[in-house]
Design a binder for these strands. Structure first.
Length: 366
DNA sequence: CTGTATGATTTGCG
DNA sequence: CGCAAATCATACAG
């Protein structure tokens, strides 16, 4: 590597150890017997350089010979020292670790989508995460579309298994490299810092791979999401019975067609739809009714009759013929918009009718 | 294919 | 956050 050559030149430069009689294998023995350290060192270095050109067996033998050389420990320590310095300087130069904003964004998104969060956290966790992530995704907390969930779960599973795979591969590889380096450190000067650096490099590489994984997971989620939204736009009409139930409620509460949360839940259950669908329905219904009451006249009469029949069935309280007040009794109405009108009286303060229509109580009175 | 009905979404307000 | 209003995009009837 780069370090190695630098180290070598550094060393030779340091000691001025260039030798004339290089390349002669027999030189070692001659020099050894002569006991000239400088020559020794130069020669040893030369031999080290030459090792790559030798056959494996020869190289092995040479290596062993060098290892047993009496100068070896000293030379080794010098090399280590130099290496330490170079590695340190390299480290100093290229050590910067800014928390990548890109990866942070990906993390946040995955968390918000409930992909990387706690297992099967459910809508609440996802919503909370979304809220925390400030992204403010319009996550409907009551998404019950199992398709979407199933696919999201699938993505999550793939994501996690891949992540695990990478993590495992990373640690395996790191271990491998560390073992290798440790092994080599007996014959080659390797400082702990260098190992550390190597590990850091490996981790960086692997985390970049992980980022790619996160990126593509995000993309998959986005695609799924958009497709899901499209699918939601591909609406299906509610079945007849559901609209009937809804209409019944609407027209029997025409004076105050704002079902409470509980009422919505009940309606949703009865109709086999979600609470937000109930809310949508009432929102649409109110606005459309108000916009063109005439158009709904027939419908209104129809359900008014229905309600009247029901009311008659339930109780013979003729005293309040005016108010069809729901079977579940009046506790709810006080919650909604107009606290003032709790004091019995007529339903004069009706938002719908006040806004739109010349008061036509007649249709409601049956 | 066209017009209407209708569920869902967006926008803006309090 | 719940609602009104406007709007979108499809379903459905003719």
């Amino acid at each position: 590597m780069d370090d190695q050559t630098r180290m070598m030149t550094g060393l030779t430069g340091l000691g001025g150890l260039q030798q004339a009689d290089v390349g002669d294998p027999d030189a070692v023995r001659k020099q050894q017997s002569l006991g000239q350290p400088q020559q020794d060192i130069g020669d040893i270095l030369q031999q080290i350089m030459a090792i790559t050109d030798e056959s494996l067996d020869e190289a092995q033998a040479r290596k062993h010979a060098l290892n047993c050389h009496r100068m070896k420990p000293a030379l080794f320590s010098v090399l280590c020292e130099i290496k330490e310095k170079t590695v340190l300087s390299i480290r100093g130069v290229q050590e910067e670790d800014p928390p990548d904003p890109q990866i942070m964004r990906l993390d946040n998104m995955l968390l918000a989508e409930g992909v990387s969060g706690p297992e099967k956290g459910g809508g609440s966790a996802a919503a909370a995460a979304a809220a925390a992530a400030a992204g403010g995704s319009p996550t409907d907390s009551s998404i019950e579309h199992s398709d979407y969930r199933a696919k999201l779960a699938q993505i999550r599973q793939i994501y996690h298994s891949e992540l695990e795979k990478y993590e495992q591969a990373c640690s395996e590889f790191t271990n491998h490299v560390m073992n290798l380096l440790r092994e080599q450190s007996r014959t080659r000067p390797i400082s702990p810092k260098e190992i550390e650096r190597m590990v850091a490099i490996i981790h960086r590489k692997f985390s970049s791979i992980q980022m790619q994984l996160k990126q593509s997971t995000c993309e998959a989620v986005m695609i799924l999401r958009s497709r899901f939204l499209d699918a939601r736009r591909k609406r299906r009409n509610f079945n007849k019975q559901a609209t009937e139930v809804l209409n019944e409620y609407f027209y029997s509460h025409l004076s105050n067609p704002y079902p409470s949360e509980e009422a919505k839940e009940e309606l949703a259950k009865k109709c086999g739809i979600t609470v937000s669908q109930v809310s949508n329905w009432f929102g649409n219904k109110r606005i459309r009714y108000k916009k063109n009451i005439g158009k709904f006249q027939e419908e209104a009469n129809l359900y008014a009759v229905k309600t009247a029949v029901d009311a008659a069935n339930v109780s013979a309280q003729a005293s309040q013929a005016n108010s069809p007040a729901t079977p579940n009794s009046g506790t709810i109405s006080s919650i909604s918009l107009d606290p003032k009108h709790t004091t019995t009286h007529y339903q004069a303060s009706v938002p719908l009718q006040t806004l739109a229509s010349p008061h036509k109580h007649s249709d409601r009175v049956v």
